[in-house]
Design a binder for these strands. Structure first.
Lengths: 297, 297
DNA sequence: TACCTGATATACAAAAATAGATGAACAGGA
DNA sequence: TCCTGTTCATCTATTTTTGTATATCAGGTA
């Protein structure tokens, strides 16, 4: 076995081949050629002493060893991207790329106006939006700033609590005209409801507060809150969404305003390392300010 | 500004120059030549559009921009190293390099026999020991497995609680012969004591349990528990150390066995990604078993 | 079956990166 | 003051890497 460290570029090539599934596709992605990519993989395999891919005329099939290495390579790529972001953000003033992670609903329904205003104030700022709920994003540097619904535990993260975004039960007037307005919470069992596909921490929290949910059999299940919101807007049935978003559509009616109210705790989070970089500082402050205004403080 | 991503090797070169302080030294470190290193830095600077170093005949002085990029580059290096570790550990069976992080005392006084036994069982296993108390190590992949005194909060970490390592007040017989054995806890105020230099979470925990400590003015202060242990062994005065370590030296006497006993909670921690890799699994298990035996279960 | 499109592997030429040698600038010590 | 050891910058030859062109193979489709 060789003693020298392989070129870090080989790792990038390796990851791209994993992602693309073939030497040729990776070559297109990286702006290199297929023989070059092939040589990189050959060199890496020679160095670590194991085969990473089984070559076939249809492409490259990753071996188990390659799969084990994949998370490391992905993290390497995330770090390299983060480094490049801070590098291009250098030079004083708010400039460069800031990468924000938020849930789908927040990222699509809530943030855009705030980000537009931010962009107006800082023309040199490039905003990337990553829609994801994974809390790990920040630590793995896949994002600079995150809007999260659970409070992060890590010391290395700077967290600003925004408060609770009010959630409520809603349905479109079209649905209610057809199926009637439920009178008591128990009536919900007779209605078409919109619920979650998989069990998540958030769902468990709802269940705890409103045990009735346990009994409901949603006719429409989706993990994506955005899809649920779309289903409500389409008059599919009764579901949970942000009160503020529902209010935007005059045809959406809030149900059981007194019986069902769930505040969705919200936090803006940033990695400590980034607190001095102007672009992150400015974005962080803008998000905090915008979200505070959004929940009506 | 260029659009293409720089070679990841440039990041490695950049970090090495930061660490070594000169192009020439970095070249020696990396097994390359000084002109090559210089070209790498030039290319990186051209790409990001900022000067990273001020060249001088004494070496390269990093600019502020370079300092901002440093943590990212360091993490990149840690990830690359982690990737290479798992890569060399491939192939079934316990082989490759495992990197363990532990506090100084644990790493020097407690772990070595366990690690020796582990190494006997698995001759192909290479063990790296990193002495540090930083909890972040695992997430940043600077270590595969850690022995920690605080329970980690992260979901991504696999944690095994070992139990409390008993701590106690100790002094060397030589000291006691000269200065007398304190009769009551209050007498400690008249003695030479060994304490911490800086305030840490651990120190605060001790203070809470034994308020008397608050009043003590240690004549010997060190953050390093190892240095404190050495001071006790040298007969400097009265200090806190692991009961088990003190027992090894027949001339060290435990004081106030009933009045002062502090269990030091201990955990073995591993990143979830590594739980299937044989070398980490075997090391994790060996550490858990060894430490359980150490605290006498 | 013939043909087209995708894939990898190989041979050779072009391009790029590297090493080596040399010069100039600076710091420290005799 | 001069010598020595360090640094970085520059120029050129060489090595390495990459790209181009081509061969080969597998799987659809007319």
């Amino acid at each position: 076995m060789n003693r020298t460290e392989p070129s870090w570029d080989f790792y990038r090539t390796f990851l791209t081949v994993l992602q693309e599934g073939s030497l040729s596709a990776a070559a297109r992605e990286l702006g290199l050629t297929q023989p070059t990519i092939g040589r990189h993989i050959d060199a890496l395999e020679a160095r670590i002493g194991f085969q990473l891919f089984i070559r076939s005329p249809q492409g490259l099939i990753p071996t188990e060893a390659a799969a084990d290495l994949r998370p490391h390579a992905e993290q390497l790529a995330a770090n390299a991207a983060a480094l490049l972001r801070t590098a291009t953000g250098q030079g004083g003033g708010v400039r460069g790329t800031v990468r924000i992670s938020a849930s789908e609903v927040i990222g699509i329904e809530v943030l855009p106006p705030m980000l537009a205003a931010l962009s107006d104030r800082h023309p040199d700022l490039v905003i990337e939006l990553s829609l994801s709920d994974a809390v790990e994003d920040l630590l793995r540097q896949e994002a600079d700033i995150a809007v999260r619904m659970v409070e992060p535990q890590q010391d290395a993260l700077i967290t600003r609590r925004i408060g609770g975004i009010p959630l409520g039960l809603h349905a479109h007037r079209r649905y209610l005209d057809k199926h009637g307005i439920p009178d008591k919470l128990e009536d919900l069992l007779q209605h078409r409801t919109i619920g979650f596909d998989r069990e998540s921490a958030f769902v468990r929290a709802i269940r705890k507060r409103v045990p009735l949910i346990e009994l409901m059999r949603p006719s429409f299940r989706a993990d994506s809150n955005l899809a649920q919101l779309a289903a409500i807007r389409a008059g599919f049935g009764i579901g949970v969404c942000q009160v503020e978003l529902a209010r935007r559509d005059p045809d959406i009616v809030r149900l059981f305003e007194n019986e069902f109210a769930l505040p969705l705790e919200t936090f803006v989070v940033m990695h400590e390392n980034l607190k001095t970089t102007p672009r992150c500082r400015a974005t962080f402050d803008a998000l905090v300010e915008g979200l505070l205004a959004y929940i009506g403080r």
